[in-house]
Simulated scan of single mutants.
Amino acid sequence: MAELARAAGVGVREVLGLALPGRSDRGNVRALLLGARIDTRNLEGFAETESLVLAGVGAAFVFRYGVLVLFGASAESERELIARLASHIVDPLAQPEVETASIEIRAEGEETVSADGHIRLREATRERLLLTATVLARSVVLGRDEGRIAEAFDRVEPLINDLRENGRAGMPIRRVMKNIGDVLSAQHRVVGRAQISEKPDLLWEHPALDRLYGRLEAEFELGDRARAMERKLEVIGDAAEWLLDLVQDKRSLRLELAVIVLIAFEVVLNLYQFWRL
């Protein structure tokens, strides 16, 4: 595996790259969500993307929000890179989430993205590969959180049904807080780390790639999926906060009843002592 020298400095970078061997003009693309985050400091062999020198479709990109994207990598190279990153992964997943596509370099014709995930580029430049990697990385993050949000809906729905049918919702406070935590965590990944709804900074320096990004973003439906997720997050968040208020009101009522009982006990005790005198 061809490697670059370690990136200078120990600062945190959002994305680092690595050139892989081979001069092929086509290959597979795999985006793997490995964990909540990847510490990009002091990664052996990875360098800043501006210094990458590529020869055809063969590259790896590591995104700080937990994703590894591979172009034209063999199964052996993939295993080796995952093992190299293992000590840098924060909260690793037991089984990585995977998004796949294929890529082809063809100098003539339009740069296109087909419905089956086949991406056609005019050149295998680092900017084009990085832009493609960014879209796939965001897509696999969305896929993971879409599943988690569906699970959150499944957890909240029985509680709402219980309230509708029985007029009460028996739920421990810790479980309510966990639901709120899941919502906040998903919002942080989508809006904060992965910045799904924002255009990549790369387009500011290379505006000619804006059309390619538009086609990639449209085919992988990043905007539509992000907006749908935001709406679902709002619904879950409102439901979780409402359930939390309900639980807190119930605890407040219990506390008030306990105070009343104590006051009543003290009154009875005082009356008893008075009559004994």
Rank of each mutant, 00 (worst) to 15 (best):
S252G: 07
A194H: 10
Q273V: 12
G45L: 07
L142Q: 15
Q95H: 05
L159K: 11
E111W: 11
R174W: 09
V261I: 14
A258S: 08
E230R: 14
G45F: 04
I260P: 00
I89H: 07
L277R: 12
L16Y: 01
A208Q: 12
V156D: 05
V156I: 15
T134P: 02
L159G: 07
A169R: 08
A83L: 12
L262H: 05
K250V: 04
L233W: 01
I180K: 10
A226W: 04
A47C: 08
G181L: 13
V235T: 07
D145I: 06
V135F: 00
A124V: 06
W242R: 11
A239R: 01
A7R: 09
R106Q: 14
F63D: 00
S51F: 06
R251Y: 10
G214C: 08
Y213T: 03
V268A: 14
G143P: 00
L184M: 13
P172H: 10
L130H: 05
L52E: 02
I89G: 08
S139C: 08
D39S: 07
A208C: 01
G181Q: 11
G56Y: 05
A107Q: 14
E146P: 08
L209G: 03
V191P: 02
R225I: 03
R41T: 11
D201P: 01
G167W: 04
A7H: 05
T132L: 08
S197N: 12
W275H: 12
R30G: 04
S74E: 09
A239E: 01
A208N: 07
S51R: 10
R26N: 08
I149V: 15
L262A: 12
L262C: 05
D210I: 03
V113A: 12
A94D: 11
E234H: 11
R211T: 13
G66T: 07
L222I: 12
R215I: 11
P92H: 06
S74K: 09
R23W: 02
D116L: 13
D25P: 02
V12F: 06
G143I: 06
L136T: 01
V98D: 04
W275I: 13
E151W: 10
D238H: 08
V235H: 09
G181R: 12
E219W: 00
L129M: 13
R126W: 02
A124S: 14
R174E: 15
I263G: 03
V191L: 13
L253A: 11
L18W: 04
P172L: 14
E14H: 04
M229L: 15
L246G: 07
R164H: 13
H118W: 05
E165T: 15
